[in-house]
Computed example of a mutant assay.
Amino acid sequence: MPRSQRNQKVSLTKTSKKGRELKQGIVSEVRKCVDEYPSVYVFSFVNLRSKLLKEVRLDFREDSRFFMGKNKVMILALGKSEQDEYQDNLRQVSKRLKGQVGLLFTRRPAEEVKTYFKALAVADHAPPGFVHDETIPLPTGSLGDWPVSMMEQFRKLGVVVEVEEGVLVNRKAINMCTAGEPISPEGAKLLALYDKKIATFTMSLLCRWSEGEFEALAEGTDDAMVTE
């Protein structure tokens, strides 16, 4: 029988009253989900954007709950050791709460959850700072079927552009991104203008806990960015 520690007090004395109340609320919500949902997963993510996460949340809205962004507080709620874990083996879940990760509480069957995340891969525009493995140039010549009114916008993005016979023309070849180097804000905007989706959004399951039983699904997490 899984052990419950519902009445265990959590110390948050190092935070302000407002912050303490917020953190205590998260602790309470996480523990409530432990009690209400039969399974909890830790997931990592790569190239996460708000709109993409929203779509995943919508897919799981009927039977699941997500928590992200407060690793230390979630660890506090679940417990770090055998002595303070909220339920048996939740300390194993806490060990995976490092870096860019989150919690998924769900009533869905395990195989259905695993299949969903294994297939999840969405091409998207790269944010500034993203490192691509290929160089994508913006050569000299016509910039494409853009209105002349776009000239100033292109210039602000570092393009040496002129109008020639009613067409925007690039006078100096540049790279929108260079292999192995972080993409600049200007480069990211240029790639988006040309609809170059070079980033792939993925979410990977690291472990599963269900009624006191723990299952490791993967090791480690990936670096990622969260952007609007």
Results as ranks from 00 to 15, higher is better:
47 N>S: 15
36 E>K: 11
203 M>N: 02
212 G>T: 11
74 M>D: 07
53 L>V: 03
40 V>T: 03
13 T>C: 00
27 V>H: 02
201 F>V: 00
42 V>S: 10
174 I>N: 11
107 R>P: 10
182 P>Q: 04
93 V>L: 09
182 P>E: 00
102 G>M: 10
101 V>K: 01
165 E>M: 09
214 F>N: 01
174 I>Y: 08
30 V>D: 11
228 E>V: 07
179 A>D: 09
93 V>W: 05
115 T>V: 05
72 K>E: 14
144 G>W: 00
129 G>F: 01
124 D>I: 04
130 F>S: 09
194 Y>S: 03
142 S>E: 08
63 D>I: 12
167 V>D: 02
20 R>I: 11
74 M>C: 00
140 T>F: 00
93 V>D: 02
179 A>T: 09
86 Y>L: 02
170 N>P: 01
174 I>A: 04
24 Q>N: 12
178 T>W: 00
23 K>V: 09
150 M>E: 03
169 V>H: 06
130 F>C: 08
57 R>N: 11
210 S>L: 07
222 D>M: 14
9 K>D: 06
140 T>Q: 15
218 A>N: 12
37 Y>C: 01
156 K>H: 08
170 N>D: 02
175 N>M: 12
54 K>C: 06
141 G>R: 02
187 G>M: 07
15 T>D: 09
67 F>I: 11
10 V>L: 10
120 L>N: 13
157 L>R: 03
30 V>Q: 02
31 R>A: 09
223 D>I: 10
99 G>A: 08
165 E>N: 13
166 G>E: 09
23 K>Y: 14
36 E>T: 13
218 A>G: 09
58 L>Y: 11
87 Q>R: 13
46 V>A: 14
108 R>M: 15
17 K>V: 01
201 F>Y: 12
145 D>Q: 14
2 P>K: 05
164 E>K: 15
221 T>W: 13
118 K>C: 04
204 S>Q: 07
227 T>P: 07
9 K>L: 10
119 A>W: 07
70 K>A: 15
96 R>A: 09
56 V>E: 08
159 V>T: 12
80 K>M: 02
177 C>Y: 04
173 A>M: 14
188 A>H: 07
187 G>S: 01
201 F>Q: 01
42 V>N: 06
114 K>G: 02
46 V>Y: 13
32 K>D: 05
165 E>H: 10
145 D>K: 14
32 K>H: 08
213 E>C: 00
146 W>E: 12
70 K>F: 14
57 R>I: 15
14 K>V: 08
166 G>Y: 10
116 Y>H: 06
188 A>G: 10
177 C>H: 02
19 G>A: 10
179 A>F: 05
200 T>H: 14
210 S>Y: 01
114 K>L: 12
209 W>P: 09
121 A>G: 15
110 A>D: 13
50 S>T: 15
80 K>H: 11
37 Y>Q: 00
119 A>F: 05
4 S>N: 06
200 T>F: 15
144 G>A: 04
171 R>W: 12
164 E>R: 15
58 L>V: 15
143 L>R: 08
160 V>L: 07
125 H>S: 06
22 L>C: 03
171 R>C: 11
147 P>R: 03
159 V>Q: 07
14 K>D: 03
188 A>C: 01
87 Q>C: 11
148 V>G: 08
52 L>M: 09
96 R>G: 03
44 S>P: 11
17 K>D: 09
113 V>I: 05
17 K>L: 05
195 D>L: 13
106 T>A: 02
